[in-house]
Design a protein around this nucleic acid. Structure first.
Lengths: 194, 194
DNA sequence: TTTTATGTACCAAACGATTGGTAGATTATT
DNA sequence: AATAATCTACCAATCGTTTGGTACATAAAA
């Protein structure tokens, strides 16, 4: 058996970086092959199709967020506020430096009417995120308010990331995070005084 | 035939509706021709290239928003709060029913690294929107705060539209608008008591 | 230990289909 | 007859995918 040039993780990471800058339809198999140091045809030793590759990339990314980022919200060694802070910090890293956070949104919008399989994964990512935030807000708000707050918090962060990208203003997300953290602290204070 | 089948406006509207559902790279000249009741070759009687067509669509859309929607903010026959309300209402119509509002975002993200000409138009749309909002907030906030508020308001609305689309939840934007309007009223009240 | 067999990894080339775009003939209107 | 709009036919290039064949590392057989 010949040694493979690539392990699965490298393949996915290389492919992600291409998809990220060119989008789904904008990326050709040739582009992907080049990024992986292969010829176009050889790619099909690793994958079944372009679509299945993208689906795997999306799924891996989603799973990564859920298990490595969102899980911070349930770390009982920390106070709720500290957990939120950790999450915000990680989000900033992801969106600003790794530039990988809005990827799911971009692809979701681009392929909404053409590849339902993508939409499903992306949708579940946001549901997970919202649920995570809802849990954290449940410490300072009642059920219904926590849900609403969580939904808008995610929308707000996504909106900030979006404007950050479109207007090339890196500070957008940071300021949003600061605002959300301050607000949370205020909610905690109100809760205590009740 | 001396008479063209299409006037410019119809051409742009038909093309927009295709670009909207399939994106830029996902739309072929054949798709565009079909939507306009023409064969592919005939399209080139109207346009120079696919890219120039899209650019015209984007520009027309942007100009429409600026002259027909954003200008409400400067309608001196109305109180500032009423102007904001008008804007919010129009925004809801546009984003929910015409489904045309997030188009600029979608295309902006899809082509960010490949077609700079698009990016420029889209960027200027958001700058105009932010400036419009900044003007309205300047009635109840000082210069710096108005600017910040305007930036986040636009991000918030865009985020809501985004989540609305990705999660198929039509209420998102409406609730965001209600929240923003209530907040504005509160800011007005605070201003008066100062 | 050497030989043989097997399966993996990859390349080079080509597949049919589709891409954005062009040229020239045809049609309809003035 | 002149003009403008449209169709038909085609181009070169690229698309995602499949092919036939080769290099090579391992496993089994001698």
């Amino acid at each position: 058996m010949a040694k493979p040039k690539l392990d699965r993780k490298t393949l996915l990471r290389n492919s992600l970086s291409v998809f990220k800058t060119m989008g789904y339809n904008g990326t050709s198999m040739n582009d992907l092959a080049k990024a992986n140091g292969l010829l176009k045809g050889s790619m099909y030793h690793y994958i079944e199709s372009k679509e299945s590759l993208m689906l795997e990339v999306l799924t891996a990314l989603k799973d990564h967020y859920v298990s490595r980022v969102f899980n911070k919200a349930f770390d009982e060694t920390l106070q709720p506020y500290q957990r939120l802070k950790e999450l915000a910090l990680r989000a900033e890293e992801i969106f600003v430096f790794e530039e990988g956070g809005d990827f799911l949104v971009n692809i979701g919008l681009e392929t909404k009417n053409s590849v339902p399989a993508f939409t499903q994964v992306i949708k579940s990512f946001f549901q997970e995120w919202i649920n995570t935030m809802k849990y954290l807000y449940s410490f300072v708000l009642d059920e219904a308010d926590a849900k609403e707050k969580a939904e808008f918090m995610v929308a707000e962060i996504e909106g900030s990331v979006l404007m950050m990208k479109l207007l090339d203003d890196v500070n957008y997300l940071h300021r949003t995070n600061e605002r959300l953290l301050k607000e949370y602290k205020e909610l905690e204070r109100q809760k205590v005084y009740k």
